[in-house]
Every structure is written in structure tokens, then in C-alpha cells.
Amino acid sequence: MADPLISVVIPAYNHERFVGAAVESVLEQSYSDLELIVVDDGSTDRTGDVVRSFTDPRLRYYHQENQDAFNTINRGISLARGRYLAILNSDDVFVRNRLERLLAICREHDFVCLFSDVVPIDDGGNEFTDPAFGWNRWHRDNRSFYFACGDLYTGFLHGNFMVTTSNLFMTADAARQVGPFSPLRYLHDYDFIFRMLLAFPERVGYAADEKLLYYRIHGGNTLSEAAIKGREQDRELIRKYVLAKIPEAWRGYVAAGSDRLVTLERELTEVRRSLQPPAAQGVRLALRTLGKAVQVWVKKKWTDKPGGSER
């Protein structure tokens, strides 16, 4: 077969419920000169069976021991033969004309990297339409900041309005120049777009008026240790890419000042917490305080009884 124009890489892991829809959304694209590379990152469910059930000759399936998402994406890209690359996480879905539209925009504006707006969906494929929904408010704020400043790099310092690796469409040459995805479990896409912007400051585009990707937000997503780790990585990335835009002679001043601001914010939070009454310091502390009060009351009631004694 002749080399396809577009290579789509799906890093797949334990998404037997969703990977079929992801694969279909690629194979049913309005632009058909493509190959689909699915790299199964050691799934323990039926993800591999679902992918292998497709018989389209444009699909290639690979299985590996679990190596995390960034390594899986890097392997998929290394196997790609197309002049353009797209990534699709195994629980997200392409709009049917996504590749056709992004290819046309790239050619028209000489972009080497492009992303679009997205549609948030739940596990059942239903769109989150409530403007008050937390993710919608977060994404709206990031987009509004970008529209106000008009600069992609500045916009990304405020927040990742690209949202996900599934939203990346780029030339293979640009991807090779930027280099592989970094070993960041939660923010490898965020790091990658900053490096792309630094390498090609005038050739990265945002199709802000076109929603060409369904981005799945799982109902089971809750605050956890990942929320802390993700924010720690976020903090380090912002520091790194703010400094990357500062002339080298000034970086020491900016680094010292920004680090001090972070420390002061942490210290202020601790001082405010220490000055608050116990009930305002959180439910757990309030419950502990209540528990101690109950113990004191019971102890007093026991010792106040006729013939009672403290034990």
C-alpha cells in the first residue's frame, strides 16, 4: 500500500466500552486516505478483542506491556507513515469531518499544528450542556482569556484550552522536530503544545469556532491523589514555560520572585487556617473537636453520678 497522507494513533488501555466508538470514528471519516494505528498498552479487559474485530485494512493493532500513555503515544508515532499525525484517546470520538476540516485549514494557513474546540460528553455519549457544569465553566474561562489576549502562548499559560492529546493534529515533520511526549503522566499534552509553540510560534492554529472532537468526561472522575499530582506538574510546567519566554538575563529574577509568591501564598493559607475558629477549618477538624467535647461531657456526667468515680 502507498503511504497514507494521515496517520491516526490511538493509545488504548482498558476501554472496552469506548474503544469501538473511537475506532469507528476514525475509519468512518469523510477523508479516507489514512491509516489507524492502535497501540494497546497492556489492557486487561476486552479492549484488544474489540479492536481486532474490525477488518478494515487501514487498521494496524499492536499490543505491549503497560508503559503509560506517553510511551504508548510515542510508539504509535514511531510506527506512523503519514505526512500528518493525529492522536485519539481510546475513550474519545472524532466528529466525522474532523480530519478533512483540519487538513484544509492547515493547508490554507500553512499551519504545522492545529486543534479545534471540543464537545464534552459523558459515559453514555450525552453532551454536558449545562453552562454551570464545572468543566464547562473551566473551559469557557480559558477560552475567554485567550480571546481577550489573542495570543496562544499566553492563553495556554492561563489554562489548557486544547484540553487533550486527542485534539492534536500536526505534520509528522513538526512532531519529529518537537520531539517525543515527555514522561508526565497527567500533562504530557500540555507540555507538548508549549514545545510546539516555541518551535513554531507563528504556525500553530486554533479552530476556535469548530467543535470537531467529542471529549469524554467520566462520571467516576473524583478528586484524588491524581488531582494533587496533576496540579504539582501544572505548577512546574507553568514556571518552566514562563521562564522560556523571558530573556536569559532576567530569568533569575523572575524565577526567584515567582517562587517567593508561591511560598507566600502557602504561608498565607496556613496562617488564615490557624486563625479561623475550629468549625471553619474543615469538617474533619470540627468533628474531632465535637468528639472531644462529647468525651469530656460523658466523663463529667459519669463522675457527677452518686458513687461515680473517674476511670
Results as ranks from 00 to 15, higher is better:
Pro4Val: 12
Phe18Glu: 14
Gly20Leu: 02
Ala22Arg: 02
Glu24His: 05
Glu24Leu: 03
Val26Ala: 04
Leu27Met: 01
Glu28Gly: 01
Glu28Cys: 02
Ser30Met: 01
Ile37Trp: 08
Val38Lys: 03
Thr47Gly: 03
Val50Gln: 01
Val50Cys: 00
Arg52Phe: 02
Phe54Asp: 05
Asp56Cys: 03
Arg60Cys: 08
Ile73Tyr: 08
Ile73His: 03
Asn74Arg: 04
Arg75Leu: 14
Ile77Trp: 07
Arg81Val: 06
Leu85Tyr: 01
Leu88Pro: 00
Val93Leu: 09
Val95Phe: 05
Arg96Pro: 04
Asn97Phe: 08
Arg101Ile: 14
Leu102Phe: 07
Ile105Arg: 09
Pro120Ser: 11
Ala132His: 10
Trp135Ile: 14
Asp141Ser: 14
Ala148Leu: 11
Gly150Pro: 02
Leu157Cys: 06
Gly159Ile: 01
Arg176His: 15
Leu184Thr: 04
Arg185Val: 14
Tyr186Cys: 01
Tyr190His: 10
Asp191Arg: 07
Ile193His: 03
Ile193Asn: 02
Phe194Lys: 05
Met196Asp: 08
Leu198Met: 07
Ala199Arg: 01
Phe200Tyr: 14
Phe200Ser: 03
Val204Ile: 01
Gly205Leu: 00
Ala207Pro: 02
Ala208Gly: 11
Glu210Arg: 06
Lys211Ala: 15
Arg216Asn: 08
Arg216Val: 05
His218Tyr: 07
Gly220Arg: 03
Thr222Asp: 13
Thr222Gln: 10
Leu223Arg: 09
Ala227Arg: 06
Lys229Thr: 13
Gly230His: 01
Leu237Cys: 05
Ile238Asn: 04
Lys245Met: 10
Pro247Ile: 07
Pro247His: 06
Ala249Cys: 04
Gly252Met: 02
Ala256Val: 06
Ala256Ile: 11
Ser258Asp: 07
Asp259Cys: 04
Arg260Met: 04
Val262Phe: 08
Glu265Tyr: 08
Glu267Val: 09
Thr269Glu: 15
Glu270Arg: 12
Leu275Thr: 12
Ala279Leu: 12
Ala279Asn: 09
Gln281Asp: 12
Gly282Val: 06
Val283Thr: 14
Ala286Trp: 13
Leu287Ile: 08
Leu290Phe: 14
Leu290Gln: 13
Lys292Ile: 07
Ala293Leu: 13
Gln295Glu: 15
Trp297Pro: 00
Val298Cys: 15
Lys299Thr: 14
Lys299Ala: 15
Gly308His: 03
Ser309Gly: 10
